[in-house]
Design a protein around this nucleic acid. Structure first.
Length: 493
RNA sequence: GGCGACGUGGCCGAGUGGCUAGGCACGGGUCUGCAAAACCCGCUACACCGGUUCAAUUCCGGUCGUCGCCUCCA
């Protein structure tokens, strides 16, 4: 596959460091609050990338940190009269809870900065020992001037950066560009013992320490939001390459920012929306669909309209899986429908039976399977081109259209339906959209009763009562669809 | 000012030197007690101005506009 590397600013053939093992590190959030939707993008991107590599046959180790010690956490703790550890733990858990709702699983390792203080201290000690860092009073700084490649990721000139750089009061840097590796403690702040006195890690060092610990120097992919390029990742390169004396990572992968409406989502503007707020209003698959609908490197708008549209797309995929499941269930591999056919389909499964018996014929099924093969190939090429999920999704929708058409024409035998369902299932799995392929929860018994009652009303031609029942069912969040030989209940949304 | 993106049909959003993106919405039709789902048909674009070319939305230059980063930020 080809993957864009932000450092060289070009797509390069991706070859992992280790033949069969892909190593990835993504920068997770600093947990001083509930994460906003923007934080979900790198999470989704990294999980989808992981799935894609796995689909290629690689073993993947994805490390995604949680930074649970920093100025803002301390500030909040102070303001709320509790410990920074407490604040960090609360929001780290909230972050896990929120991202769990996406249904993408967890990264393989989710290291906490506060649990890697020793590794951080060791790394700093090494940098000092080798002359890349120096102690200044209670603090330790990285010596930017000693790292020739500084600015190579963000494409900035050191001289110009120095122009606008500033030092906070009380800092004793030699060079304004130097950044803190270790911050000496101040009254009321949490601290750890170190060779340089009590203090805490600076912002960037934890990621280098943890990525090197779990993945080793020269690992494959280091990712995160574009806004981390400077200073975070630039500084990581400086400190990590100085420490290892060689390349830090092979590919830098940066996702674009999220905008809310026409305003940029920004903490300073105060217009952030938390991930949990979004997930309370929309299905997780819809949010994933929105992310995948545009390329991961592009900035994107997140508006109610976009999310609503994604809900529709989710419905369409759910429908195609539902129809395929129904068709697959209508008979054995010979294509003969079971006697009697299905009438009620309380779980959304089962369904039409009678008209199915007529469609046999290998030819139409074979033609459709050919289409599936072609779509899968196109899907694979799209993903192989810098994870072009939007194009990959288009193949899924294209296939859905073809499947529906074949289904409508009665050209799909149960065995073919089952096979297509499985293949489509594999595709949506790579994109983290497994939910669209699942049957969903069982329909509540009372809803089924209402639907049954409605059937009776229809049979008795009491349509006003039937419609009232449908409305009542809709009010409960379900939709009744009349199908040729019965009905079907599906969840709205 | 430096660096990096981007301007595609009603909307979102891929992509390409000549040939269908896809989705949503909309209009017409089929099916249906109604509705939904689905199918069929329709709607077909590449900011502007130059240039290169047999041919440019796609390459080059310029103009206008939008956005991100330049030590809070995924």
């Amino acid at each position: 596959m080809r993957l864009y590397d932000s450092l060289s600013q070009e797509k390069k053939e991706f070859v992992p460091r280790d033949a069969e093992h892909v190593t990835m590190y993504f920068c997770g959030p600093t947990v001083y609050n509930y994460v906003h939707v923007g934080n979900a993008r790198p999470f989704v991107v990294s999980m989808v990338a992981k799935r894609y590599f796995e689909s290629l046959g690689y073993r993947v180790t994805l490390v995604e940190n949680i930074t649970d010690i920093d100025d803002k956490i301390i500030q909040r703790a102070l303001a709320e009269g509790r410990s920074a550890a407490e604040v960090g733990a609360e929001f780290a858990q909230a972050y896990r809870d929120d991202t769990d709702r996406l249904g993408l699983g967890r990264p393989d390792v989710e290291p906490l900065a506060t649990e890697h203080i020793q590794e951080i201290i060791d790394l700093i000690a090494k940098l000092i020992k080798e002359g890349h860092a120096y102690q200044a009073g209670p603090d330790v700084y990285f010596k930017v001037a000693g790292f020739p490649g500084y600015g190579k990721l963000s494409k900035q000139q050191v001289a110009e950066m120095r122009h606008g750089a500033r030092s906070a009061v009380g800092e004793d840097k030699i060079d304004p560009l130097d950044f803190a590796l270790w911050k000496g403690t101040k009254p009321g702040e949490p601290c750890w013992d170190s060779p340089w006195g009590p203090g805490r890690p600076g912002w960037h060092i934890e990621c280098s320490a943890m990525s090197l610990k779990y993945l080793g120097a020269g690992f494959d992919i280091h990712g995160g939001g574009r806004d981390l390029i400077f200073p975070h990742h630039e500084n990581e390169i400086a400190q990590a390459e100085s420490a290892v004396g060689g390349p830090f990572v092979r590919f830098w992968m940066h996702n674009g920012m999220l905008n809310l409406g026409d305003e940029k989502m920004s903490k300073s503007l105060g217009n952030t929306v938390t991930l949990r707020e979004i997930l309370d209003k929309y299905r997780p698959e819809a949010l994933i669909m929105v992310f995948l609908g545009s390329h991961y490197r592009s900035p994107m708008e997140l508006t109610p309209a976009v999310l609503e549209e994604a809900e529709q797309q989710v419905n369409r995929l759910r429908n195609v899986f539902g129809e395929l499941a129904d068709r697959a269930a209508t008979g054995d591999a010979s294509g003969v429908a079971p006697p009697g056919g299905a009438v009620a389909a309380p779980t959304g499964g089962g369904g039409p039976g009678a008209q199915a018996a007529l469609s046999v014929g290998d030819a139409p099924g074979a033609a459709l399977l050919e289409r599936v093969g072609a779509r899968r190939e196109a899907f694979a090429s799209a993903m192989a081109d810098d994870l072009n999920t939007a194009a990959a999704l288009a193949e899924i929708f294209g296939l859905a259209r073809e499947v529906f058409a074949a289904l409508a024409a009665g050209e799909v035998d149960p065995a073919t339906a089952a096979r297509i369902r499985a293949e489509l299932g594999e595709m949506v799995h790579v994109l983290g959209l497994d939910a669209v392929a699942e049957g969903g929860d069982a329909i509540p018994a009372d809803i089924v009763l209402m639907a049954e009652e409605r059937q009776k009303c229809r049979a008795a031609r009491d349509f006003s009562r039937a419609d009232a029942l449908r409305a009542a069912i809709a009010a409960r969040g379900y939709e009744v669809r009349d199908v040729p030989d019965g009905y079907k209940v599906v969840p709205l949304r």
